[in-house]
Simulated assay, not measured.
Amino acid sequence: MSPAARTLAVVEATRFRGHDPEYHAYVQVLVGGVVRAAEADGWTVSRLAADAGTDSLLAATERADAVVIVGGEDIAPRFYGGAGGYPHESLHRETADAAQLALVHRAIERGVPLLGICRGLQIVNVALGGTLVQDLGESDHVRRGVPIPEVLTTHPVLLEPDSRVEELLGGPVVAVRSAHHQAVDVLGAGLRVTGRAPDGHVEAIEHETAPILGVQWHPEDPAAPAGQLAALLGALRVPARAASLAA
């Protein structure tokens, strides 16, 4: 596959958050960072919103050579058998949730490389039957009561030896930028944990056979270590649709 032929779908929950202009503006910074980094790496990028629905998203990504699912609001609890009413519960976008979950299933079936960032990691886990810790309580993973651009924290992540993420980032410990009040609880089928925060919460997961990688942090944040996002996008440089060809 020549570089000019590589097409990447960058998928967010929604393109518009009129109820929260500050958060919407910061999302544009983050998603824009993914798009620019991918284009610099030679990808032809389509930026797509999952709230258009499952059929629309699957059609729009039908020919994508790889997928990135970016951050956003909490996944609706019904998709992982949870209950509502938990602390700091966000607005839910169930149409977007369902579409992104379907996209993960198809990526695995076809062997299409997929990178999940923050919410994207959680979507991968829930798609494969995993569950979430609904609120981490008072933790080092999010600052509260500060402007949105200051919400992210910097902390280390301990990576598993010989994991794909350790290979991509070049060491057993990396500094990351993150903000999340939820985390992986029960791990989904076919996944393994390949990175944890010092407090033990899951920060990276990988599929055992499919080219699927998820990180809980934000490598696209402007204050993230230089080159970290580009390195993780390197996970998408594997032959696509291997699973469908073998099926």
Rank of each mutant, 00 (worst) to 15 (best):
V112W: 03
G137F: 03
P87F: 10
A64G: 09
A83D: 14
H180L: 08
R196A: 09
G81N: 00
V184Y: 01
R144I: 15
V142H: 06
P87V: 14
E167Q: 06
T209H: 09
Q182R: 08
A246H: 08
A9T: 14
L115Y: 09
E62K: 11
R164M: 03
L168V: 14
I117C: 14
V186T: 15
D97M: 02
G111N: 15
D199G: 11
A76C: 07
Q100Y: 06
G33Y: 00
G18S: 05
V27P: 00
L115I: 12
V27M: 05
V238M: 01
A243E: 13
V184A: 00
V142Q: 10
S2V: 08
A40H: 06
P172Q: 11
L91E: 14
D41T: 12
C118N: 04
V11P: 09
R93Y: 09
E12L: 12
E166G: 12
R93K: 06
W217A: 06
A107C: 15
H180Y: 11
E73D: 11
Q122W: 03
L168M: 11
G200T: 11
T54I: 00
T153H: 00
G85T: 01
R237N: 13
G227T: 14
T54H: 00
I205F: 05
P21Y: 06
V174N: 02
A99D: 04
L159F: 04
L48A: 02
A107N: 11
L233C: 06
E109V: 12
T7W: 00
A246K: 10
I69S: 04
W217G: 03
G145T: 06
P225S: 10
S2F: 04
V45K: 05
A83K: 09
V10A: 03
G190Y: 13
L158E: 07
A9S: 14
A59N: 13
P198I: 03
A246Q: 05
R144D: 12
G42R: 09
V157F: 02
A230F: 02
E73F: 05
V29Y: 02
L121T: 15
R36S: 07
E22T: 13
A107L: 10
E203M: 13
P198L: 01
D55Q: 03
R17M: 06
L169W: 10
H155M: 04
V29G: 07
H201G: 09
L30W: 08
E12S: 13
D41M: 15
A50E: 00
A49N: 03
G130D: 03
I212T: 15
D185H: 01
A60T: 01
V173T: 09
N125V: 11
A4T: 13
I108K: 04
H207P: 12
L232P: 08
